[in-house]
Amino acid sequence: MTDTAPPVPSLWSGFIGIVRRDILLAWKRPGDVLNPLFFFAMVSTLFPLALGPSSEQLGSIGPGVIWVAALLAALLSLNSLFVSDFEDGSLDQLLLSPQPLTVLALGKAIGHWIVSGLPLVVISPLIAISFHMPDQSIKVMAVTLFFGTLSLSLFGSIGAALTVGLHRGTALLSLLILPLAMPVLIFGARTVSLSTSDDAVSAGIYFLAAYCMLALTLAPFATAAALRISNE
């Protein structure tokens, strides 16, 4: 037993450790991954059924519908982000580990994004095709969803951390996070609908990328603070 503190594993191993663990958990429990995806697909098919099959109308509402469905699907999977850690005590272990909690919070958010955000981006072209959207806007849809879902996971992890201790936190979480998700929705959906009439789309994509960087840098600090507060 040396009399100095034992060496602390590197930041990278902490970050990768938690991302790998969450992906492994998702792999072992596929329901958590597939349910939001099915929800996303189903919500998107509700609208053609409700509004009739006329293709040009679908084309115009397509971007908005897909984006709202993606937003709700991401929210669906967010509230269980920290709940399982809170219930089995591993949240205490995370908070008491020498690794900075901000890096671990970033790892949790990225892990959630890989498990829920990326699959949305991957299957969004299929849904976009069913809405008769032109090819270039399918590409723009994928790009905007890529940045949008990442920002959602990051800001959403703040909300998940704030409501982790509360037993009826689900509705509250969306109440907290939706106002923060509005800029992402606005720029995402409008940029894609601009691309259907092939206007310039770079402005919207640049904004989404910038918002994503803001989320990447600021959200983990807020999530770490929120975790320490709700785990008291």
Binding site: F155, L176, L180, M182, I186, F187, A222, I229
Partner: peptide, 27 residues
């Protein structure tokens, strides 16, 4: 606990107010 948790939310919200305002203007 309510104080500290809602203070975090107020700060996160404050960062977003100008962004929301700008994105609604653009929209």
């Amino acid at each position: 606990k309510a104080d500290k948790a809602s203070a975090v939310l107020a700060l996160v919200g404050a960062v977003n107010v100008p962004i929301i305002h700008y994105s609604v203007e653009w929209w």
